[in-house]
Amino acid sequence: MSSPRIVEADFIKSAQSIADSLPEDMSEVVFLGRSNVGKSSTLNSLTNRKNLAKSSATPGKTQLINFFETRYLYNEESYPVRFVDLPGFGYAKVSKTLKEVWQRNLVEFIEHRVSIRLFIHLRDARHPHAKIDDDVEAYISEFIRPDQRYLTVFTKTDKLNQKERAKLKREFPGSITLSNLKKSGHERVHREILQTIFGVDEEERSQEELPSDRAG
């Protein structure tokens, strides 16, 4: 079985709210997470584009909704998907007024954007029980539609030892553990995206990634 891969990835535009966003003419995968969870690094790794998503030296500085159009190639079939990078949440140094507008715009986008099919919630593997992440998961569960899916992906798993990784998998059995440094977990994310949006049947998992997920 061949591996799904992204053969095209382009930044299209930034938006402040759902009002100035792109038309809802393509299925979307939304990436959300705390400001320092590594969203930009994850997007760059998944797309194999070094500077597709710009990371800011100051967490919380990227305050716009960023749209990227990508195209998968899998078993000689082409699958177009739009990736949406949401502003990081939970950073206290954003001014109160901006934070109120920011949150209102994001809430409207997350709850009412019809083209969203998959929410990928990036969580820091070193802080798996952060309250703000639990709150976001509970919030999304209140309105998620039958045609939408929520997926937890833990970043920075290379910073855990083998015992800590095993504990994480026990506590979050449906999650994916990912390391941008070791390039592990990415194929599972790709397969989940294709299965959720296009119904591509994935009964097999990449055997190559399992050892690296368990490596000490």
Rank of each mutant, 00 (worst) to 15 (best):
T97Y: 05
I12T: 14
A15Q: 05
K61E: 14
V107S: 14
V94D: 08
K54V: 06
K131T: 13
N75L: 03
S55F: 05
S14D: 13
F89D: 11
I132C: 08
D20L: 03
S45I: 00
S95K: 07
N75D: 14
I65F: 01
A15C: 11
I132A: 10
Y91C: 12
L52C: 11
R117L: 00
D25P: 03
E100W: 05
N66H: 10
E100C: 06
V114Q: 13
N36R: 05
S14H: 09
A15S: 15
P80H: 04
I110N: 04
M26P: 02
A130K: 13
H129C: 09
L118W: 02
K93N: 15
F68Y: 15
E76C: 00
A92L: 02
S45P: 04
L73N: 11
Y139D: 12
L52E: 11
S27Q: 12
F83T: 06
K13G: 03
G33E: 06
P59A: 08
L122A: 02
L122V: 04
L106T: 11
F83V: 05
L106H: 12
V136D: 06
V81K: 01
D135W: 01
A125D: 06
L43Y: 02
E108S: 12
T97F: 01
V101E: 15
Q63L: 07
V136C: 04
N44V: 04
K50F: 01
L73F: 00
L32D: 11
V30N: 11
D124P: 12
N66T: 11
S14T: 14
T97P: 09
G88C: 07
T70C: 14
L46I: 10
E28W: 03
P87V: 06
Y72K: 08
D135E: 15
R126M: 03
E28A: 13
N44Y: 04
Y91R: 06
N105I: 00
E111D: 13
S56I: 08
N36T: 08
Q103R: 14
N48V: 03
K96Y: 07
L106D: 12
V114L: 04
L64P: 02
E76I: 00
N105S: 03
I116K: 02
A92I: 05
K131M: 06
H121C: 08
D135S: 11
R49E: 14
T58Y: 12
K61L: 10
T62E: 03
E142Q: 13
V114R: 13
T97G: 06
Y79V: 10
G90M: 02
H129V: 01
L86E: 09
T97H: 13
H127Y: 10
